[in-house]
């Protein structure tokens, strides 16, 4: 936070003012730069993670979740972060979302340091976080409602696209897991974020539903220009979805390697059986195997100490 205040020049250089702050929202609208040239793969970095280190220090335990991480995510890029459980990949996402402040380094969005959560950076959580006390319709409307800018046609369209028409008045607990996850996606899209941060959103779903959700997500992403950071421990999922797969090490989390996935888009599930896909999967598996082992050992050690 102090970093931002000490850096006024950078702030004024900001070329995309719509990404920061509540002031725009209070006016009931958010300027979405139509002429910003958000064509696919512009090569410009939208998110810059610069020498990010995050140390958790509960009662002096001093756990380094992420260490000296550098990563740039381009405008409209789909990046998957692949790593074993407990490797700090969620921490990276939480720093971008603005929930956590980095211990060292910084996260820049359009050159501007992250200062708390913002509607331009939408988040989907691992456990479904639809508000259980609101109906599906109320959940879908939530973001726009916060700034009095509900577009009913858009909500209706999104619900229809995701097969949720007719469930507007249902409460989340009345829906299946897959439907809940779709509804959460609708809630996010209704808010029209530039960046979608997704933390293992499909990990709780059965294999069939998961595959359908992945295809739906790709459809949505192809249709509207967005940048996605998708966190997963599922190798196949990462390769199927991503332009680039960032493989992380066990704790302290660092980037082990980055795989550029050069498979044509649009992709559907037929990709999963292609030779290229298998090659990528093999490579990613090799990369992650040792890390998964190390993560498991760490976990075991911690359990014994506790």
């Amino acid at each position: 936070m102090s970093k931002q205040e000490s850096n006024p020049e950078r702030r004024s250089q900001n070329r995309n003012q719509d990404t920061n702050g509540y002031e725009d929202m209070e006016n009931g609208h958010r300027d979405l730069d139509e002429d910003d040239g958000r064509a696919r793969a512009t090569g410009e970095a939208l998110v810059e993670i610069d020498d990010l280190t995050k140390i958790y220090d509960p009662d002096g335990a001093h756990v380094t979740a992420v260490e000296n991480m550098d990563l740039e995510i381009g405008d409209n890029e789909f990046v998957c972060v692949l790593g074993p459980s407990g490797c700090g990949k969620s921490t990276v996402m939480e720093c971008i979302a603005g929930y956590l402040e980095p211990t060292e380094g910084e996260v820049l969005i359009n050159g501007d340091p992250v200062d708390g959560p913002d509607p331009s950076r939408g988040v989907v959580f691992q456990s479904n976080r639809l508000f259980p006390w609101k109906t599906i319709g109320q959940n879908a409307r939530f973001g726009p409602q916060m700034r009095n800018a509900v577009d009913d046609d858009r909500i209706r369209e999104l619900l229809e696209e995701t097969g949720l028409s007719g469930f507007e008045d249902s409460y989340p607990h009345e829906l299946s897991g897959g439907m809940q996850q779709r509804a959460e996606l609708v809630r996010l899209l209704a808010n029209d974020p530039d960046i979608m941060l997704m933390d293992e959103p499909f990990s709780g779903l059965d294999a069939m539903t998961k595959e359908l959700m992945q295809e739906m997500l790709l459809d949505i992403w192809e249709e509207e220009d967005r940048t996605v950071l998708f966190i997963t421990h599922d190798v196949a999922e990462a390769i199927f979805l991503a332009d680039r797969v960032v493989v992380m090490t066990a704790r302290p989390g660092q980037i082990k390697d980055v795989i550029d996935v050069d498979i044509d888009r649009p992709r559907d599930s037929s990709v999963l059986t292609s030779e290229a896909f298998n090659e990528y999967q093999k490579r990613a598996n090799e990369l992650i195997h040792d890390e998964a082992e190390r993560a498991m050992e760490q976990k075991q050690q911690e359990t014994q100490e506790a």
Partner: peptide
């Protein structure tokens, strides 16, 4: 759960 508040904030809630 804190994540509900986080979700609200990321959707633009003051």
């Amino acid at each position: 759960d804190d994540e509900y508040s986080r979700a609200a904030q990321s959707l633009g809630a003051a």
